[in-house]
Design a protein around this nucleic acid. Structure first.
Length: 595
RNA sequence: GCCCUCGUAGCUCAGUGGAUAGAGCGCAGGUCUCCGGAACCUGAGGCGUAGGUUCAAUUCCUAUCGAGGGCACCA
């Protein structure tokens, strides 16, 4: 189904061809939502600019355009206002017919895309040998949401956990453990993630203080990369325990992701360097193999390269990321690769993407002639109340497990405080399910509802507030709608479908319009990769529903008469519930039937 | 020094080349014999500053001030 906006855009373009000739077909019809309902639902601003080019008066051009429009079944007759705005107001009969169709569609009017793209989403990416902490929260939540939206759109998704399981820090760890903790090799089962983390801290300290150890650690990286058995075995122990820990977190958050760490690309690194050298893209400088990209300078104003092989022979993350791009394009046939990584790494990705293009890694074969799309979805930091990076009171990192535990515990008391009598009959299991949905939902929703680039202050009170653009409010809104069905004694699924609804009251019409905006919102999110567009929409939808269901300003639903009106309104409730459930689900947030 | 991101209401955050810049919290007031009031409505209050492009700039460009971040062998 086309979005409402597309429908109007196409009509305006047809009008433009009539008014401005063939070139009208390539013009942007400048269709936007109106700033105020009194101007209708959508407006086209194309007449003002066109008038200038044609040397005619804007309102006359607008009138010519309106006369040429063929859109009577969708809109009321368009009106010209102000300097030359063309205002469109959707006809309730059209909305009613469209919504009838949406109701009969399990996908709520959103068909799968015609041409699915093989799409990689690279997200979460914790470092091994450390517990997952708040620094992994945003990538995990945002990446999951993006993958869910694109998957629902019909794309062929590959979710990759590009785990930091390689590199210098592992050299440190391997060197430290093989020198001081022989038990790890002989009794790996005795060591848990906290032990590894302690080893890592100690190793890091020695690395910083003891140059001899630092050299040994760098040599250990080479050992690892060349497959030396002890280093390799220790590494496997670290990975096994760390991945087990990460998997617990993912299960709890409902995240699906495939582990494919940096080490996966290790065998490909020499060939990548070789290829770049052969093609003259990379050369040796100061002992390292470098790719100098045009436009990049360091502090001293000298050319800034990316280093793909260090002077000691080891590879680094630039090499791995280039190898990953090549592998994802050539072996995985990716058409779009999305990196959900914090915004501080923007420069790194810009350079790697540029190098990958230079190297020809992103031009696929004749079956997909266009260049592979590489995108970095960068996001800001999670801050504490002091506006510094979020830490515990003691100054340590905030562990994800503890954060999630606290979220659920706080959610339980927030929900309990509402003192709804319905809760008296709930089982402890049901209460626990609600607390988990609200608590985990609150953390996710709060994160996703901020625009990506900005930092945000982690604030329990705001994210667990019952009012405003929060998960508790959204989940409440859903539970409330569902309860209407129960109270009305109807099975939403059994309501008559695929017939026009009866839309008369202004709140019914407003709700209907909001429901029909959903496909366009999802399309926007899948193009722009900005999840907060979806949270804003869902919040707006909930508010429209509240107005519709309001005692004073809205309409009666459960006791509405006659039966045809009651059914129509109940169908609006059903559509609201299904849209909320689907929308929240695409954000990775589970709903509950009661709160 | 160069580059990137961000400066919007008292606070927390949205938003747009177009008509009167939105929401939540807080504040002030109002509604309804109340289907889940965790509601609805009204009000006060804001685009860091200065230029430029444009029929139209809060949005694009430049400068400037402020905050954060990045800048070759860590990732």
């Amino acid at each position: 189904m086309e979005t409402l906006r597309q429908l109007i855009e196409e009509a305006v373009i047809e009008g433009l061809v009539i008014v401005a000739g063939p070139e009208g077909a390539t013009m942007d019809p400048l269709v936007r939502p109106t700033p105020d309902p009194k101007f209708g639902d959508y407006q086209s601003n194309v007449a003002m600019g066109l008038a200038k080019r044609l040397g005619r008066k804007p309102r006359a051009v607008a009138q010519a355009l309106v006369d040429a429009l063929d859109i009577a079944d969708v809109c009321e007759p368009p009106e010209i206002a102000g300097p030359g705005f063309i205002n469109f107001r959707l006809r309730p009969a059209y909305l009613a017919a469209q919504l009838g169709r949406v109701q009969a569609d399990p996908r709520l009017g959103i068909p799968p895309v015609d041409r699915p793209w093989r799409t990689v989403v690279d997200f979460s990416s914790p470092n091994l040998a450390k517990e997952m902490h708040v620094g992994h929260l945003r990538s995990t939540i945002i990446g999951d949401a993006i993958a869910r939206v694109l998957e629902f759109q019909g794309h062929d998704m590959l979710r990759l956990n590009h785990i930091g399981d390689w590199g210098t820090q592992f050299g440190m760890l391997v060197q430290y453990v093989r020198a001081t903790q022989p038990d790890v090799l002989h009794h790996p089962e005795r060591f848990r993630i906290d032990d590894l983390e302690a080893f890592y801290r100690q190793a890091k300290q020695r690395f910083d203080e003891d140059p001899e150890f630092a050299d040994a650690a760098r040599r250990a990286v080479v050992d690892l990369q060349s497959g030396e058995p002890v280093a390799r075995r220790l590494w496997e122990v670290f990975c096994g325990e760390s991945l087990r820990h990460a998997r617990d977190i993912y299960d709890r958050l409902g995240i699906r992701i495939e582990d494919r760490g940096e080490s996966f690309y290790n065998p490909m690194l020499p060939a990548v360097v070789e290829e770049l050298r052969e093609r003259g893209i990379a050369r040796r400088a100061e002992g390292a193999v470098c790719v100098f990209l045009p436009g990049w300078k360091n502090r001293e104003g000298e050319p800034l390269p990316i280093i793909i092989q260090k002077s000691d022979g080891a590879y680094n993350y630039d090499t791995t990321d280039l190898a990953a791009i090549r592998h994802r394009v050539q072996a995985e046939r990716a058409r779009r690769i999305i990196y959900v990584v914090d915004i501080r790494q923007r420069q790194h990705f810009e350079m790697v993407f540029q190098a990958a293009r230079l190297a020809g890694f992103v031009s696929s074969d004749e079956t997909a002639p266009a260049e592979v799309v590489l995108e970095h979805v960068g996001f800001g930091m999670v801050l504490g109340p002091d506006r510094r990076p979020f830490k515990t009171r003691e100054g340590g990192t905030v562990k994800l497990k503890e954060l999630l535990d606290e979220a659920v515990a706080r959610a339980a008391s927030v929900v309990e405080a509402a003192e709804d009598e319905r809760r008296r009959e709930m089982s402890p299991e049901q209460k626990a399910e609600i607390a988990a949905a609200v608590g985990l939902g609150a953390v996710k929703y709060f994160d996703l509802s901020h625009s990506l680039a900005s930092d945000y202050v982690f604030d329990w009170e705001t994210m667990l507030a019952m009012d405003g653009n929060t998960a508790p409010y959204m989940l409440y809104a859903y539970a409330r709608v569902r309860s209407i069905g129960r109270r009305a004694g109807v099975d939403f699924d059994a309501l008559p479908a695929d017939l026009p609804l009866l839309l008369e009251h202004e709140t019914e019409i407003a709700l209907a319009k909001a429901l029909l905006e959903f496909p366009g919102v999802l399309q926007q999110v899948s193009e722009e990769l900005r999840p907060h567009v979806l949270t804003d929409y869902l919040y707006g939808l909930s508010r429209r529903f509240s107005a519709f269901y309001d005692r004073e300003r809205g309409v009666r639903v459960i006791d509405a008469e006659p039966e045809s009106v009651r059914h129509s309104r109940l169908r609006l409730c059903d559509l609201t519930a299904r849209t909320l459930k689907l929308g929240l689900g695409l954000l990775g947030i589970a709903v509950v039937e009661q709160m």
